[in-house]
């Protein structure tokens, strides 16, 4: 794939994604007018106002024209104008994206690192008590839905003990700056991050462990041991590296929903992020914003995929031969 015109397939994929992004939101019943202005009975929706809004949102133009306009604007780097937020989509996205990347990006890194190390250690100690304890813990915690785990953590640390913030990503208007601001952000980040790590580390751990178990029986491991390589070296250098391939794939998979996948955790902790933003955009049928979010998510996935292909080669040089 790296050799024969990978670029073309990616361009095609981007086009397919753009079309899906455009069409799927519009297939959903309801339109922005109804969603944004229809809900409040107090509003005076005169026919003139309605007409003006239809024009402002270009809802009166045929879909094909809207699609072309969308593509043309995209080409200029213009993501459009959010109906509900009354602001350029790019500005809205840029406001929320850092918080999402902070929370879910950090969670993904922690999960992958923790999962791989625990998985390798556990796999190498297969059947022994440490393995059993780790395995049961992973199985038990892995069964918690994120909103469940998050709520329990919030109830315990936030409500009962009062040591964790109840909501938000920082203390609003506390006049913090510099280090104290960083600490404040970290303090607010702790529980949501912990929740994500607790419920998401399981798959990484299990996958590493599973592959580790398979790998440890392979001939090259025996060879390594026969050579007299120390146990640790065999574990990490030989077997561990070999087990990385599926883990890297799994990490890539999680990244697919990295952008929007933390919806429930964001909701439990009132944490700003793309998950709740997408939810709000869907509820208000804010087409440009939905498109913008989906595009961001898609670009993130494609980029990560591309990087993964590179990492595959690094981790498992045989992959190149396989193509």
């Amino acid at each position: 794939m790296l050799r024969d015109r990978p670029f073309a397939t990616y361009v095609l994929a981007v086009f397919v994604i753009l079309s899906l992004n455009f069409i799927l939101p519009r297939l959903m019943p309801g339109d922005p007018l109804l969603a944004i202005y229809g809900e409040e009975a107090l509003l005076a929706m005169s026919p003139e106002l309605k007409e003006e809004l239809v024009r402002r949102f270009s809802l009166d133009r045929p879909l094909s024209a809207q699609f072309l306009a969308y593509l043309a604007a995209l080409f200029r780097g213009d993501l459009g104008h959010s109906y509900y937020f009354n602001a350029p989509v790019s500005r809205v996205l840029l406001g929320f994206l850092p918080w999402t990347l902070l929370l879910t990006g950090l969670a993904l890194c922690l999960c992958a690192a923790l999962g791989v190390v625990l998985g390798i250690e556990s796999g190498a100690r297969r059947g022994r008590p440490q393995d059993a304890v780790l395995l049961s813990a992973a199985l038990f915690l892995g069964g918690f839905p994120d909103f469940f785990a998050g709520t329990l953590l919030l109830l315990f640390f936030g409500v009962t003990l009062g040591v964790a913030p109840l909501a938000g990503a920082l203390t609003p208007y506390a006049g913090k700056a510099g280090l104290s601001l960083v600490l404040d952000v970290l303090h607010h980040l702790t529980l949501p991050l912990l929740t994500l790590v607790v419920v998401r580390v399981g798959p990484f751990y299990l996958l590493t462990r599973n592959t580790m178990v398979t790998t440890l029986g392979e001939a090259f491991i025996l060879t390594a041991r026969a050579k007299g390589c120390p146990d640790r070296t065999v574990r990490y250098r030989h077997a561990g590296r070999h087990s990385l391939l599926p883990v890297v794939t799994a990490a890539g998979l999680q990244y697919a929903h990295l952008i929007t996948g933390a919806l429930f955790v964001e909701m439990v902790f009132s944490y700003p992020g793309m998950g709740t933003l997408l939810y709000r955009a869907l509820l208000t049928r804010d087409y440009p914003l939905i498109q913008g979010i989906l595009l961001t998510a898609a670009l993130a996935v494609l980029t990560v995929n591309f990087l993964l292909e590179l990492v595959y080669v690094k981790v498992d040089p045989r992959v190149v031969r396989a193509r």
Binding site: V16, I17, L20, L24, L27, L253, H257, T260
Partner: peptide
Amino acid sequence: DRFWMRAVDALLVIPPVIPAIL
């Protein structure tokens, strides 16, 4: 392979909420 993998990419980025609503 390439066809399916790009299809998978495209499907993966669609958040589950959207097909669910549809």
